[in-house]
Design a protein around this nucleic acid. Structure first.
Lengths: 204, 204
DNA sequence: TGCCTTCCGTACGGTGCCGTATGGTCTCAC
DNA sequence: GTGAGACCATACGGCACCGTACGGAAGGCA
């Protein structure tokens, strides 16, 4: 909501900016993160961007195209970028540890995550989500394998690590945050890291 | 139709009968399971039931009331009923084992589950979902405690068990079913059961 | 300066849903 | 059989959104 204001402000103060396809995609991803797939709607977004549908239908054929753009953007930002960033880390155990910390850390990340999981069977979401899920688990499994775990075990570890993570953010939200109090979180993470054979990360 | 019978013919296959509040709630839960919260819509449901909105607004004040009824129905069927069924099992380890088997078994159960998780922040869903989540995890933790695990550990075990389960059905759907092939499932469950300290259930 | 492309504003019609109003029909007690 | 209450059908207005049509404004370039 301060977003719309900002745009209005910018419009008034500076120069009226013409929007690009990327601007729309970015706004769509933001809307997705905090309103679900249904919030990716042309007219509301236009208002939020301080423009009108006229702009939108110049850059996109229809709403479907916008959703696709947003989802692709998400896949890149929240998976490929992270993997690119972790790939140079040579020690696989350190790599895993950093991955889990990054994943568990940001609540902003999980918001888009949850919105997409919520529409996993939507024809626009499903293919990307499926690709991303496979990519992540494969990456985790490869790290485990690199630490010396036999391949079959590596995959099982990876599946557990990934599902425990997804399940945790889901259940935390489902419980209204009462599932795990903040003060119990470190102990739980220690426990989880021990279970999935990751060396305990240093406490901050 | 050649019969000029007194029985009015409806488009649906069901014979025309007067509907109860429960009929609507049941249909709503079914719609929820396979179309998400948005599918709990009065007019489509009326068509599906072979009736009209006139019936609906006799039994319910508005759509909100219908959603509430469906969600409550879900909470009872998929949590309270299961717990009632498991409570008489005296051995806590057996109780846990049966619980996990029941939870992992039915795909029909998880469909409504997923639909509700998808709308965890909806004001109509949130309170019930939060209640149910707490109830389930508490139940699991109590079982663990009863097996002799110290209380703190019991809760951590319970959280892991629950989130691993939720995460698994989520990730399976997200991956389009490719996360864990059917043939890898038993081995994974063995692994999971070992990790969360539950005696391995007998293979069927 | 004028022109042409790129981009945006606005008006409009269409769709799917919610909720109300009102009158009709069915059922059961009597 | 009849009347009262329970239940349903239909028509209507409203809202939020999609997508189209078309007339402009903005900004580079001759």
């Amino acid at each position: 909501m301060p977003y719309g204001l900002t745009v209005r402000y910018r419009t008034a103060m500076v120069v009226k900016r013409r929007l690009s396809r990327q601007d729309w995609a970015e706004a769509a991803l933001a809307a997705l993160a905090d309103g679900g797939l249904a919030a990716v709607a042309v007219e509301p977004l236009a208002i939020r961007l301080g423009t009108t549908k006229g702009s939108f239908y110049w850059h996109f054929a229809n709403r479907e195209a916008l959703v696709q753009a947003a989802v692709e953007r998400w896949a890149d930002e929240h998976t490929e970028a992270l993997i690119r960033q972790l790939e140079p880390v040579s020690d696989p155990a350190t790599r895993l540890r950093q991955l889990f910390e990054a994943a568990i850390g940001s609540g902003r990340i999980s918001r888009a995550e949850l919105a997409l999981l919520a529409h996993a069977d939507d024809p626009l979401v499903a293919p990307v989500l499926s690709r991303v899920t496979a990519r992540r688990v494969d990456f985790i499994a490869a790290c485990y394998a690199e630490t010396g775990v036999p391949p079959g075990d590596a995959r099982r570890h990876a599946v557990l690590a990934y599902t425990a993570h997804i399940g945790l953010i889901q259940a935390q939200r489902a419980s209204g945050g009462t599932l795990l109090a903040d003060r119990d979180r470190p102990a739980y993470l220690d426990f989880l890291y021990r279970v999935i054979s990751v060396e305990r990360p240093p406490r901050r």
